[in-house]
């Protein structure tokens, strides 16, 4: 199980690097799609079929198509000097590296003791729905407001006239 997980993680990493170092925007978008699929596989491994499929539906069916659509619409092609390393970005990257090491170190030094909350792991849609509409009712409502804001915002920015 561990090997399978890490092989999958390796693929995630490869696709993630493919996204951030890619030269062709469209290829990067596809790499991102494959990355999302590996994450969906992780959800399947953990036993949560529901989340895995939702992940594929939302990302593959919606988000990546949207990104690809905009890439074609804007006519973005290969841009050879798309990234260059200036002094500022270099220091940023070094700081980020130290930050990452710090986070890993901090997490490794502490004892994270997980206590099982239930006798078994409930991955059914019914279980998730119960939690969503009882304990997480208010976040759910706020998320709906957030979606509405997002829709109106995207509409306002993307439409032609003022």
């Amino acid at each position: 199980m561990k090997t399978v997980f890490y092989i999958n993680a390796l693929f995630s990493l490869i696709f993630a690097l493919g996204v951030i170092f890619g030269k062709n925007p469209l290829r990067s978008a596809l790499s991102l799609l494959l990355f999302f699929l590996t994450i969906a596989l992780d959800f399947f491994f953990a036993g949560s079929e529901y989340l895995g499929f939702v992940q594929i539906i939302v990302y593959a069916g919606g988000i990546i198509v949207m990104i690809a659509f905009v890439i074609i619409l804007l006519g973005l092609k290969k841009e050879s000097p798309d990234y260059d390393i200036t002094v500022r970005s270099f220091t940023g990257i070094i700081l980020l590296g130290f930050f990452a090491l710090g986070v890993l170190y901090g997490l490794a030094k502490s004892v994270l003791h997980l206590i099982p909350k239930a006798p078994y792991f409930d991955t059914s849609a019914a279980g998730i729905g119960d939690a969503l509409f009882s304990k997480y009712l208010l976040p759910f409502e706020v998320a709906s407001i957030l979606l509405l804001v997002g829709v109106v915002l995207a509409f306002i920015f993307a439409k032609k006239e003022v």
């Binding site: 706020v142 998320a143 804001v149 109106v152 915002l153 306002i156 920015f157 003022v162």
Partner: peptide, 27 residues
């Protein structure tokens, strides 16, 4: 809100609403 996740969602809603206010004269 006294729940961290609730705070996160409200914070996102706030950011995007403010983005709408900032960008209202987008042209």
């Amino acid at each position: 809100s006294i729940d961290l996740f609730m705070i996160f969602l409200s914070l996102e809603t706030l950011s995007f609403s403010l983005l709408g206010l900032i960008g209202i004269l987008k042209q």
